[in-house]
Design a protein around this nucleic acid. Structure first.
Length: 111
DNA sequence: AGTGTGACACTGG
DNA sequence: TCCAGTGCCACAC
């Protein structure tokens, strides 16, 4: 098995795991970093499968608007928002305030 | 092998 | 500036 043969999902998990504490990123940013800028939607799908993994901080991944779209997929109701707020991220009605302030772009940080 | 789906992103009005 | 529609790629059935 070649490590380079990693599926798109595996790569997404890897990047998601690299998201620093108190930071958030967008699906498109991860997709772009993986070389599939137009596959932002696929990143979200990958996150859906990440439910099987506990090491994937999916709550740190939001859409470009800073909206917690994936919250509905989390266990509880406000679990995702609680997790973000717990990390110091201000979330108002499923929307992150000052998104640019918390935004973490793997394309830039990891380069 | 083909069709449908999806936790998005972008462009146009 | 905001709302709606379209495009997109990869996975599941």
């Amino acid at each position: 098995m070649k490590e380079e043969n990693k599926n798109f999902f595996q790569k997404v998990y890897e990047v998601a795991r690299l998201i620093p504490y108190g930071r958030v990123t967008s699906y498109g940013a991860i997709a772009t970093y993986l070389g599939a800028a137009r596959s932002a939607r696929m990143v979200g799908w990958a996150m859906n499968a990440s439910h099987n993994m506990d090491d994937i901080p999916a709550h740190r991944v939001v859409n470009r608007k800073g909206l917690l779209t994936g919250k509905h997929h989390f266990d509880g109701t406000n679990l995702m928002q609680q997790l973000l707020e717990s990390e110091g991220v201000k979330v108002k009605n499923l929307q992150i305030e000052n998104l640019e302030n918390y935004f973490w772009d793997p394309s830039i940080e990891l380069k």
